[in-house]
Structures are given as structure tokens and as C-alpha cells.
Design a binder for these strands. Structure first.
Lengths: 245, 245
DNA sequence: GTCCGAAAAGTGAGATCACACTTTGCAAGA
DNA sequence: TCTTGCAAAGTGTGATCTCACTTTTCGGAC
């Protein structure tokens, strides 16, 4: 199972660096491009090291480079992309072990805080959406569908944090996922990672149902801690592979 | 004293919306504009409600609108600016009472964390810089120099958080100051605010000297808590004055 | 004196182009 | 066959222009 998840995204992603956006007519283009890239980064559809070219994207999306440039610069500001090398091309950044540890600590603090509040505030309608995302994740694991898993992994967490009703807090958490998201695709290749993670998700789901703030915080914290540990072992290999200069 | 601080910035700021940037030759323009606006926002040199025009700034700085637009959009992403009204003009956002409370809680958590680490890690050379910023703040209070105070208030906190050696954490804190910075100028008009705040600063300075992590966290937390309380009383007035639509 | 409406001025957004720079690729020479 | 060097292609950046839209202004009608 792990081998499946580990191999497929690498191949498909390197071939099509970016799945075309369905541009709705009438609305602003720049905001759409930004929102779409943000979503794609957070859910882990782009691999670390992947490069993005303004002209290439402009041709794909059928718009000029201007709005794309602005969108990518915004994401660069948030750490979701970086400008790389003497050629100064945009790419998805790799992460250092130190930075991973730092983000882990912040995430435990902030996502833990959000989970606590969510446990107290969540209402049945939202609870059903969370449960639905959980079911889809479990189905994705069974069907060995990496894309489906990643999409609903982000959706699961996002729905929980939304319930805390703290937009600024949610914004910061999203910004951290922007940095961490691309790594999840690497993590799910690690043996046992998915089982561990789904354990945490199930515990979080139960805690939310029981409105148990402490349990919710702990479940989220454990998920983050274990994922960081799994990633730490992978980082050395990929850092040399996609090596920064 | 408070009256002085409260009145002058309002008048001067409305006349010259943005003090010209000294553009260094040879380096990238967009990055400079972004960095300068970021600094100006964090230190509180721009007032909430103040409007910024691309063409006007372009004329002032002697460059085209393109890099300015990108810089302002970046700041909009971070919440430091907003697009306002049907005319869609950039301006410094006002803050709601709910958002202020939210940011207060996050700041206490994150800046408290950074202060703890700083207390353990800070070295004599950095300690001298912090003490220097503190002295300048005290001198600014005596001389009733709002600009000098604001500049060194941000510098004081920034130097402390830098000592924690957590770049990502520092980035998030800066982003919160981007949102909060413009309000400090309003807060220092409140009677007793400066004395309260300088008390906290002195306590923080002492805690850092003693490498007392708990005391450092508490000093910073108290500063944030009291500033938020002072601001809360002012918000209702200014919200109706600069009112959002 | 007041009010209405059209013209003028001002706003950001997106397309296009010239520029400086780096990387790539290929051909000529050793 | 290998190396060297130059041209071609590719990169992001900033300037300029047009467009759609909103706000302001000011003159004429009532």
C-alpha cells in the first residue's frame, strides 16, 4: 500500500506540473489563480522541488503573465513558493529539519488551540461534514487513491479548524500548511504512517463528538508530532535529491 | 503628554500619506517597496483608514506602478492592507473588536513562546541592543516624540523575538504586528497607556537579564493584554469615524 | 438657492513589450 | 572523441498602455 502511494504521485506530478484551472468567467483572474495554487499547495498536489514558469502557466491557463506573477509572488511571501537559483525560477521549496521542528511546535500550539475551541463550538451540521471527510479518507486508503486521500486530509483538518470560528487563527494555520502540504505526499509513502495518522483522525473525530476539548487537542497534537517524526527520516534523502543551492 | 501623542500623528499622517523611500540603486525595486511598507506598517507610521494610490505612489517614488501593485498585493495577502469600496482603493484596515481579541490570544501564545526561548538563548551583545531600544523608548516618552517611540517599540520587541532563533515563528509574529501596528499609534493616546507599557517593557528587560523564561513570558503577555484592553475602548469611536462599509 | 446629470478625473487590472540575465544546445576545432 | 564557445531559448522584471469602473466636479435647469 505504501509503495503505491509513494510511487504514483512522483511520476504523474513530474509530467503535469499543474492541473489546469477551470477559470470562471466574469470574476477577477488573479484571485482565482492565487486561490487555486493555494489549495493545490495545501492539499499536497505539488511536490517539493517542482518548478513553475510564468510563461508556461500563462499559456496553459490562457491568460497573460501579469496576474500569475502576482499570485506566485503572494505565495512566495507566505513561504509556499520560493525563487530559486541564478535563473530565478519559481519552485516549491524543500524544508530543512530545523524548520520542520519549528513548524511542528507552532502547529501543535495553534492547531491544538483551534481543536480545543472547535470541540466546544462545533455543531451537528459541521460535524457531519467532518465525518464525511473522514470516511472519504478511509475509503481512499482502501482504494489506494493518493489524490483522494490528500484532498480529504486537508479538508478534514480545515473543517475542524473552521469550527473554532477564529478567521485569523485559521489564516495562520493555512499558511503553515502551505509550507507543510507538499511534504504530506512524501510522508504517506512511509510504512505505517497512514495507519498512525488515521488513528489520530479517529480519536479527533471521537473527541469532537464528545465535545472533549483536551482529547481533541491531544489527538491533533499527536498527529502532527508523528507526521513530523516520519518526515524527519525522509528529509535527508530528498534534500540531497532535490538539493537546494 | 498623551494629548500630544494623540494629536500630532493624525495631522502629519493625513498630509503626507507616505514618507518617501530612499531607493537604493542596483537592487530590485519591488522587494524594497514591499520591505519599506512592511516596516512602516509594523512600526505604526500609517494610520488605520489611510488610503494609498498606485499612481500617486509611483509618481512619488519615481517608478512604474507594476512593482508597487505587487508589493501592495503582497501586503494585502498578509492582512496589512485591504482593498476598499467600489473604487477598490488600497487602504490601511481598521480592526474589529472580535479580531482584536483573537489576535490578542494568538499573540500571547506565540510572543510568549518566543519570549521564553529568548530568555534562555539571548546573548550579551543582543541584550545590549534590546537595552538600547528600551532607553530610546524611555527618552522618546520624555521628549514626547511619538515617531521615536513607535520605531523603538517595534525594534524592542523585534530584537527580543529574534533572539529566540525561530525564523518561522518570527515571521508569524511580524504578520500579526502588520495588522496591529497601525493601532499602536491610537493606543498611545490613551491616558496611562505609556506608563503601563513601559512597566511591562522594564519587567521584560529584567527577565531577559536574569534568563527567567517564565517572567519574560508573563511580561510580554501582560503588555499585550493591557494594550488590547486600552485599544478596545478606542475602537468604537474610530470604527464609526473611519467606518468600513 | 437647490438639484440633477453629464463630463472629467481618478482607480486598479490585465496585456504586451523590451531588457538583463541564465541555461541549454549544438557546432566547430583540437 | 572530447572540449570549447557562441548562439538560441528560456527566465523573471519593470514600463507602458488600454479598459472598465467609480468618484468627483461643475455647469445648467428649475
Amino acid at each position: 500500500m505504501q509503495e503505491f502511494f509513494a510511487s504514483t504521485p512522483d511520476e504523474s506530478a513530474s509530467r503535469s506540473p499543474f492541473r489546469p484551472i477551470a477559470l470562471e468567467e466574469g470574476t477577477t483572474t488573479q484571485a482565482q489563480v492565487y486561490a487555486e495554487f493555494r489549495r493545490v499547495l495545501m492539499s499536497g498536489s505539488l511536490r517539493p522541488g517542482e518548478e513553475l514558469s510564468l510563461r508556461q502557466l500563462a499559456a496553459t491557463l490562457g491568460i497573460s503573465t501579469t496576474p500569475i506573477r502576482e499570485a506566485l509572488r503572494q505565495l512566495e511571501t507566505e513561504g509556499g513558493l520560493e525563487i530559486h537559483g541564478g535563473n530565478r525560477v519559481y519552485r516549491v521549496p524543500m524544508i530543512s529539519s530545523a524548520e520542520l521542528a519549528e513548524i511542528r511546535d507552532i502547529r501543535i500550539k495553534l492547531e491544538g488551540m483551534a481543536a480545543e475551541m472547535a470541540a466546544e463550538l462545533i455543531r451537528p451540521a459541521q460535524m457531519r461534514l467532518v465525518a464525511n471527510a473522514f470516511d472519504l479518507m478511509r475509503r481512499a486508503v482502501e482504494a489506494r487513491d493518493a489524490d483522494l486521500y490528500l484532498e480529504n486530509n486537508w479538508r478534514f483538518h480545515s473543517l475542524i479548524y473552521q469550527s473554532a470560528q477564529r478567521p485569523t487563527l485559521l489564516g495562520i494555520i493555512e499558511r503553515l500548511w502551505l509550507r507543510t502540504g507538499p511534504l504530506v505526499r512524501l510522508a504517506i509513502g512511509k510504512a505505517g504512517h497512514l495507519d498512525q495518522s488515521m488513528d489520530c483522525h479517529e480519536a479527533a473525530l471521537r473527541a469532537l463528538r464528545d465535545h472533549d476539548a483536551d482529547a481533541a487537542r491531544e489527538a491533533v497534537a499527536r498527529d502532527i508530532r508523528e507526521a513530523a517524526r516520519d518526515l524527519d527520516g525522509i528529509l535527508d534523502n530528498t534534500n540531497t535529491k532535490t538539493g537546494r543551492n
